[in-house]
Computed example of a mutant assay.
Amino acid sequence: MIVAAAALVPGQASAQVSPRSPLLDLDRAELRSQIDSRYQSAVQATQASEIKRSADSRFVWAAEAKVQCGIALGYLKSGTRDEASINKCDGFSTRMAQASAPAPVAAAPAPAPGCGVDPSVSVFFDWNADAPLAEAQATVQQMVASRASCGWTRLAVTGHADRSGSDDYNVGISTRRANNIAAMLENAGVAVSDMTVSGKGESELKIETADGVREPMNRRVEISAQ
Protein backbone atom coordinates (compact mmCIF):
# COMPACT_ATOMS: atom_id res chain seq x y z
CA MET A 1 0.00 0.00 0.00
CA ILE A 2 1.40 3.41 -0.96
CA VAL A 3 0.54 6.21 1.43
CA ALA A 4 0.71 9.80 0.23
CA ALA A 5 2.98 12.04 2.29
CA ALA A 6 1.33 14.78 4.32
CA ALA A 7 1.39 18.09 2.47
CA LEU A 8 3.23 21.03 3.98
CA VAL A 9 2.24 24.63 3.43
CA PRO A 10 4.97 26.32 1.36
CA GLY A 11 7.10 28.56 3.54
CA GLN A 12 6.49 26.62 6.76
CA ALA A 13 9.70 25.96 8.63
CA SER A 14 11.07 22.89 10.27
CA ALA A 15 11.13 24.82 13.54
CA GLN A 16 7.37 24.51 13.68
CA VAL A 17 5.70 21.31 14.83
CA SER A 18 5.58 18.94 11.87
CA PRO A 19 2.09 17.77 10.88
CA ARG A 20 1.28 14.25 11.99
CA SER A 21 2.18 11.91 9.17
CA PRO A 22 -0.32 9.25 8.04
CA LEU A 23 2.66 6.89 7.95
CA LEU A 24 2.26 6.58 11.72
CA ASP A 25 -0.96 4.63 11.15
CA LEU A 26 0.84 1.84 9.28
CA ASP A 27 2.02 -1.41 10.80
CA ARG A 28 5.73 -1.68 11.53
CA ALA A 29 6.72 -3.57 8.38
CA GLU A 30 4.87 -1.25 6.01
CA LEU A 31 6.08 1.83 7.90
CA ARG A 32 9.69 0.72 7.57
CA SER A 33 9.17 0.06 3.85
CA GLN A 34 7.71 3.54 3.30
CA ILE A 35 10.46 5.29 5.29
CA ASP A 36 13.15 3.32 3.46
CA SER A 37 11.58 4.29 0.11
CA ARG A 38 11.68 7.98 1.06
CA TYR A 39 15.26 7.64 2.30
CA GLN A 40 16.42 6.04 -0.95
CA SER A 41 14.66 8.73 -3.01
CA ALA A 42 16.36 11.46 -0.96
CA VAL A 43 19.79 9.84 -1.36
CA GLN A 44 19.31 9.59 -5.13
CA ALA A 45 18.20 13.23 -5.30
CA THR A 46 21.28 14.50 -3.44
CA GLN A 47 23.46 12.63 -5.92
CA ALA A 48 21.64 13.75 -9.09
CA SER A 49 23.79 16.14 -11.13
CA GLU A 50 20.79 18.17 -12.33
CA ILE A 51 19.68 18.81 -8.73
CA LYS A 52 23.04 19.09 -6.97
CA ARG A 53 23.49 22.83 -7.26
CA SER A 54 22.96 25.79 -4.97
CA ALA A 55 20.06 27.30 -6.96
CA ASP A 56 17.89 24.18 -6.75
CA SER A 57 15.80 23.96 -3.56
CA ARG A 58 15.13 20.26 -4.26
CA PHE A 59 18.69 19.54 -3.13
CA VAL A 60 18.16 21.22 0.26
CA TRP A 61 14.90 19.36 0.94
CA ALA A 62 16.48 16.10 -0.23
CA ALA A 63 19.38 16.59 2.17
CA GLU A 64 16.97 17.28 5.05
CA ALA A 65 14.85 14.25 4.12
CA LYS A 66 17.92 12.02 3.95
CA VAL A 67 18.93 12.99 7.48
CA GLN A 68 15.48 12.64 9.06
CA CYS A 69 14.53 9.45 7.20
CA GLY A 70 17.87 7.96 8.20
CA ILE A 71 17.16 8.79 11.85
CA ALA A 72 13.66 7.29 11.58
CA LEU A 73 15.07 4.11 10.02
CA GLY A 74 17.62 3.79 12.80
CA TYR A 75 14.89 3.94 15.42
CA LEU A 76 12.72 1.46 13.52
CA LYS A 77 15.58 -1.02 13.31
CA SER A 78 15.79 -0.91 17.10
CA GLY A 79 12.03 -1.45 17.39
CA THR A 80 11.10 2.16 18.19
CA ARG A 81 8.75 4.50 16.34
CA ASP A 82 10.21 7.98 16.69
CA GLU A 83 7.27 10.19 15.73
CA ALA A 84 9.32 13.37 15.37
CA SER A 85 11.74 11.97 12.79
CA ILE A 86 8.95 10.11 10.95
CA ASN A 87 6.91 13.31 10.65
CA LYS A 88 9.95 15.26 9.44
CA CYS A 89 11.00 12.51 7.03
CA ASP A 90 7.55 12.54 5.45
CA GLY A 91 7.32 16.33 5.46
CA PHE A 92 10.73 16.97 3.92
CA SER A 93 10.13 14.24 1.33
CA THR A 94 6.92 16.00 0.36
CA ARG A 95 8.67 19.36 0.02
CA MET A 96 11.38 17.69 -2.07
CA ALA A 97 8.72 16.26 -4.39
CA GLN A 98 6.77 19.53 -4.56
CA ALA A 99 9.79 21.75 -5.23
CA SER A 100 10.29 22.58 -8.86
CA ALA A 101 13.48 23.04 -10.82
CA PRO A 102 14.77 26.63 -11.01
CA ALA A 103 13.31 28.66 -13.82
CA PRO A 104 15.63 28.93 -16.81
CA VAL A 105 17.54 32.19 -16.97
CA ALA A 106 18.37 34.28 -19.98
CA ALA A 107 21.52 33.27 -21.77
CA ALA A 108 24.57 35.02 -20.37
CA PRO A 109 27.29 36.52 -22.55
CA ALA A 110 29.76 33.98 -23.82
CA PRO A 111 32.28 33.27 -21.03
CA ALA A 112 36.00 33.50 -21.45
CA PRO A 113 37.59 30.31 -22.81
CA GLY A 114 37.80 27.62 -20.13
CA CYS A 115 35.55 29.53 -17.68
CA GLY A 116 31.89 28.67 -18.20
CA VAL A 117 31.03 28.28 -14.52
CA ASP A 118 29.11 30.18 -11.87
CA PRO A 119 31.48 32.40 -9.82
CA SER A 120 29.41 31.77 -6.68
CA VAL A 121 28.32 28.53 -4.98
CA SER A 122 26.60 27.73 -1.68
CA VAL A 123 27.23 25.06 0.94
CA PHE A 124 24.36 24.14 3.27
CA PHE A 125 24.16 23.08 6.92
CA ASP A 126 21.88 21.20 9.27
CA TRP A 127 20.08 23.22 11.92
CA ASN A 128 22.32 24.45 14.75
CA ALA A 129 25.38 22.90 13.08
CA ASP A 130 28.61 24.53 11.93
CA ALA A 131 29.85 21.40 10.12
CA PRO A 132 28.52 21.33 6.54
CA LEU A 133 26.52 18.56 4.90
CA ALA A 134 28.58 15.75 3.37
CA GLU A 135 28.12 17.14 -0.13
CA ALA A 136 30.19 20.23 0.78
CA GLN A 137 33.50 18.57 -0.10
CA ALA A 138 32.49 18.15 -3.75
CA THR A 139 31.31 21.78 -3.90
CA VAL A 140 34.59 23.04 -2.43
CA GLN A 141 36.64 20.96 -4.87
CA GLN A 142 34.53 22.27 -7.75
CA MET A 143 35.17 25.87 -6.67
CA VAL A 144 38.92 25.29 -6.34
CA ALA A 145 39.06 23.78 -9.83
CA SER A 146 37.00 26.66 -11.25
CA ARG A 147 39.29 29.18 -9.58
CA ALA A 148 42.29 27.66 -11.32
CA SER A 149 40.67 27.46 -14.77
CA CYS A 150 39.06 30.91 -14.57
CA GLY A 151 42.02 32.75 -13.10
CA TRP A 152 40.16 34.02 -10.03
CA THR A 153 42.63 35.38 -7.49
CA ARG A 154 40.49 35.91 -4.38
CA LEU A 155 37.48 34.20 -2.83
CA ALA A 156 34.90 35.61 -0.43
CA VAL A 157 33.69 33.02 2.10
CA THR A 158 30.53 34.35 3.77
CA GLY A 159 28.55 32.49 6.43
CA HIS A 160 24.82 32.90 7.03
CA ALA A 161 22.21 31.66 9.52
CA ASP A 162 18.45 31.23 9.67
CA ARG A 163 16.32 33.18 12.15
CA SER A 164 15.93 30.48 14.80
CA GLY A 165 18.51 31.92 17.23
CA SER A 166 19.41 35.27 18.75
CA ASP A 167 21.26 37.86 16.66
CA ASP A 168 24.52 37.32 18.56
CA TYR A 169 24.26 33.54 18.37
CA ASN A 170 23.57 33.63 14.64
CA VAL A 171 26.55 35.88 13.97
CA GLY A 172 28.70 33.41 15.89
CA ILE A 173 27.47 30.26 14.15
CA SER A 174 27.60 31.88 10.71
CA THR A 175 31.22 32.89 11.38
CA ARG A 176 32.10 29.36 12.49
CA ARG A 177 30.48 27.98 9.35
CA ALA A 178 32.53 30.35 7.19
CA ASN A 179 35.74 29.46 9.05
CA ASN A 180 35.10 25.73 8.56
CA ILE A 181 34.57 26.14 4.82
CA ALA A 182 37.65 28.38 4.61
CA ALA A 183 39.64 25.59 6.29
CA MET A 184 38.38 23.13 3.67
CA LEU A 185 39.42 25.53 0.91
CA GLU A 186 42.84 25.95 2.51
CA ASN A 187 43.27 22.17 2.65
CA ALA A 188 42.39 22.10 -1.05
CA GLY A 189 45.17 24.55 -1.87
CA VAL A 190 43.70 28.06 -1.46
CA ALA A 191 45.98 30.33 0.57
CA VAL A 192 44.45 32.01 3.62
CA SER A 193 45.67 35.36 2.27
CA ASP A 194 43.53 34.81 -0.84
CA MET A 195 40.27 34.56 1.14
CA THR A 196 38.00 37.08 2.83
CA VAL A 197 36.07 35.25 5.56
CA SER A 198 33.06 36.69 7.40
CA GLY A 199 29.79 35.80 9.13
CA LYS A 200 26.61 37.76 8.43
CA GLY A 201 24.29 36.06 10.92
CA GLU A 202 20.68 36.39 9.79
CA SER A 203 21.17 39.79 8.13
CA GLU A 204 21.22 38.52 4.52
CA LEU A 205 18.54 35.84 4.19
CA LYS A 206 18.22 33.84 0.98
CA ILE A 207 14.53 33.30 1.80
CA GLU A 208 12.68 35.85 3.93
CA THR A 209 11.00 34.30 6.98
CA ALA A 210 9.50 35.28 10.30
CA ASP A 211 11.72 35.37 13.37
CA GLY A 212 12.40 31.92 14.83
CA VAL A 213 11.94 30.01 11.57
CA ARG A 214 14.44 27.24 10.73
CA GLU A 215 14.71 27.77 6.98
CA PRO A 216 17.31 25.35 5.47
CA MET A 217 18.10 27.62 2.50
CA ASN A 218 19.29 30.32 4.92
CA ARG A 219 21.78 28.04 6.71
CA ARG A 220 24.61 28.37 4.23
CA VAL A 221 28.08 29.57 3.34
CA GLU A 222 28.50 31.34 0.01
CA ILE A 223 31.85 31.06 -1.77
CA SER A 224 32.24 33.80 -4.37
CA ALA A 225 35.01 34.86 -6.71
CA GLN A 226 36.21 38.42 -6.18
Rank of each mutant, 00 (worst) to 15 (best):
V3W: 01
V3G: 07
V3F: 05
A4V: 15
A5Y: 02
L8Q: 09
L8M: 10
L8K: 08
L8W: 07
V9E: 11
P10M: 08
G11W: 09
Q12S: 14
S14D: 15
Q16A: 14
V17Q: 10
R20Y: 05
S21W: 00
L24T: 04
E30Y: 05
S33T: 08
D36W: 07
D36P: 01
Y39I: 01
Q40R: 12
Q40H: 00
V43L: 05
K52H: 11
R53T: 06
W61H: 13
A62P: 00
E64L: 13
A65D: 06
G70P: 00
I71Q: 11
A72H: 02
L73P: 00
K77Q: 08
S78N: 08
D82L: 06
D82W: 10
S85H: 07
N87Y: 05
D90N: 09
F92M: 06
F92V: 02
S93M: 02
S93H: 15
T94S: 15
A97E: 13
A101Q: 07
P104I: 04
A106K: 01
A108N: 00
A110Q: 10
G114Y: 11
P119E: 08
P119I: 12
S120Y: 00
S122E: 09
D130H: 06
D130G: 04
D130F: 10
A131N: 11
L133H: 08
E135V: 15
A138S: 10
V140H: 09
M143Y: 02
A145N: 15
R147N: 06
G151N: 06
T153E: 15
T153S: 09
R154E: 08
L155N: 07
L155W: 04
A156R: 07
A161P: 02
D162G: 08
R163A: 09
S164C: 14
G165Y: 11
D167H: 03
N170M: 10
V171F: 04
V171C: 00
I173R: 14
N179R: 15
E186Y: 13
E186F: 10
A188D: 04
A188T: 03
G189K: 03
A191E: 06
A191I: 07
T196D: 14
G199R: 04
K200R: 13
G201A: 04
K206S: 14
R214W: 15
E215N: 13
N218D: 13
N218R: 06
I223M: 05
S224I: 07
